[in-house]
Design a binder for these strands. Structure first.
Lengths: 338, 338
DNA sequence: GTGAAAGCGCTAACAG
DNA sequence: CTGTTAGCGCTTTCAC
């Protein structure tokens, strides 16, 4: 037979399925040690594996948490997942990952899927600051706990955890300026991602601090992907404006820009410095050694999981909470590349 | 209420739950158009989402396929998953991913988990050519279809799909030789991964073809990770032997070796050429432009899915089949990096 | 300490 | 066309 059930074990041993169930659950109070031993041994021998679907149905909870992320190209989200899975597994929860591909329709489908699987809670990084807000609200009012991480959401009564994007930008841009750069291109992220706006604020703040002029022509829409970043860079270069540094929104967009510059025989970083903040990862791209700044990914995952679990424990009188992480800045060498 | 059921809809409308079930399943034959419309509308309004656990239980299949991979650092496996998911989704299957982290114990846990979830079939890339063979056999004899991809398994009566590792190595090493390299270090992969052995064969084959001497000292255990690759390289350099190229098993191991060489101020590729085959990805690491060879990942995913589905359709008189892919060699520029 | 029985949400066979 | 019923595998009272 394909899958063995407690009934199979019960039959084989001439006991009732209740006893088998109890034994397998390790209910020492209510089952004689020898019966226990016998049942467990038989179960192992027959290759029994509990049917999770049946348990979920009966228990009215799945002991699984859904995680929705916008993309898988950046290592940040992969890392976040690793940390979150580790955290949640320790608390007895499985995880199920859904990827929205930066698309609001796919994001809705992800959420639908998670609801179908009856997840007990959701960890979410949105692809749009506002588009699906009413859906989130709806799910939460139904009693499905949600915590939003990394990407900000507007107008939603929910717990959130993200980094201080403005300060992070300030840090990066200041670094560029102190290393002698004056004309810094900003590859701006999409408007519908709140973090992009914050980073622009940071960029402007530093210019002001150093009394450098703010020229809107140096702020170009860099999108999210390498292609968009490359196109943006190409457009800017064609404009003929001088520049000595590029500060981008996405890691991938900056990489795209870099490839364009290389094709045009710019030397990096002698001619131009490149840097970006990716996810919660601050990373400077300097040639020939790639270096990145240690991200508070673990801390963010920890916080998000804690917030979610707290909310699940007492759904009543729960107050949404926003946590802003600062993130230690630790330079490290990067080995990963393709 | 947290989750609405067909019973809730039935009550609200004064019909039986069967009718609701039928309507929601789009059974046009057996439900009056207006009832249909009414039910579907109400379901949408109430935010109904089918309970997958209940359906799985009833239907005795989950319409999900489990995919087990050994690691997530190489982009190959991530790509494979993308392709496989796309394929399977079209055929009406969900997928669930499990990562063994190159560890046979974790691999067993992954399989356990998939069995618990009652997957209808398994796509598997093993972390050891033999260690868990009896488990695979057991699952298959139980009637759970499995197809093995990328990493070879020994002594298992199952369908497999992988590339011709020996030929791929021949291609890469020949390339090195034709570009003037004579003393080629081989960063050998672990013995328990069949592909590593095949690649060593390819390496030796080329040397013979070009009448170059085979020196066992040039074959060093490079492991899988960047750390292991780095250590192996360091050991080799300290041995004092001359070399002008490195051909490695894993992409990451070669990257590790590269970082060591850079630290020692070797110029790449003037002093030394680096290349490797990663997963099914052939990739040459030459400086300053990273380039990789187009992988037959899509083809491998397609084949694996097809083999699995075929096996699921007629479990009786099914014959294990091994497909060896050759893989078109197309150089392309790589943009991804961190 | 063990068994009998109900029921989680859903589908499918059978009746009408 | 619609309702009634049984049952998927499991946990959990409630009896004994």
């Amino acid at each position: 037979m394909k899958y063995v059930t407690i009934m199979d074990i019960a039959h084989a041993l001439g006991v009732s399925k209740s006893t088998v169930s109890r034994a397998l659950a390790g209910d020492v109070q209510n089952v004689k040690p020898e019966t226990m031993e016998l049942i467990c041994e038989t179960a192992r021998r027959m290759g029994y594996r509990r049917n999770e679907a049946a348990v979920n149905l009966r228990r009215q909870h799945s002991k699984t948490i859904g995680i929705v992320i916008p993309e898988v190209v950046t290592s940040f989200f992969m890392n976040f997942i690793q940390f979150a899975q580790h955290d949640l597994r320790q608390k007895g929860y499985r995880t199920i990952i859904a990827v929205s591909n930066e698309d609001i329709t796919q994001e809705r489908e992800c959420l639908d899927m998670l609801v179908q699987c009856r997840v007990d809670g959701i960890l979410m990084s949105v692809c749009h600051r506002a588009a699906n807000a009413s859906l989130y609200q709806d799910l939460m009012s139904r009693g499905i706990p949600m915590v939003f991480f990394d990407r900000r959401v507007d107008g939603v009564e929910a717990s959130q955890v993200h980094i201080d994007d403005a300060s992070a930008s300030v840090y990066m841009v200041e670094k560029l300026i102190r290393s002698g750069c004056r004309k810094i291109v900003h590859l701006l992220g999409p408007e519908h991602i709140g973090n992009a706006t914050d980073r622009l604020h940071g960029y402007r703040e530093v210019l002001e601090k150093f009394k450098l002029p703010y020229n809107p022509q140096y702020v170009v829409s860099g999108g999210l992907s390498a292609e968009e970043g490359a196109q943006a860079m190409e457009r800017f270069v064609r404009s003929g404006l001088e520049f000595d540094a590029v500060f981008g929104f996405t890691e991938t967009a900056v990489l795209g820009a870099k490839s364009v510059l290389q094709k045009m025989h710019y030397r990096i970083p002698e001619d131009v410095s490149l840097c970006c903040i990716s996810g919660t990862a601050l990373c400077t791209l300097v040639h020939p050694t790639l270096s990145a700044v240690e991200q508070p990914t673990a801390e963010m995952a920890d916080t998000a999981c804690r917030l979610l679990l707290e909310q699940m424990e007492r759904p009543v009188h729960f107050k949404p909470q926003t946590v802003v992480l600062s993130g230690e800045v630790v330079l490290r060498e990067s080995t990963k590349a393709v």
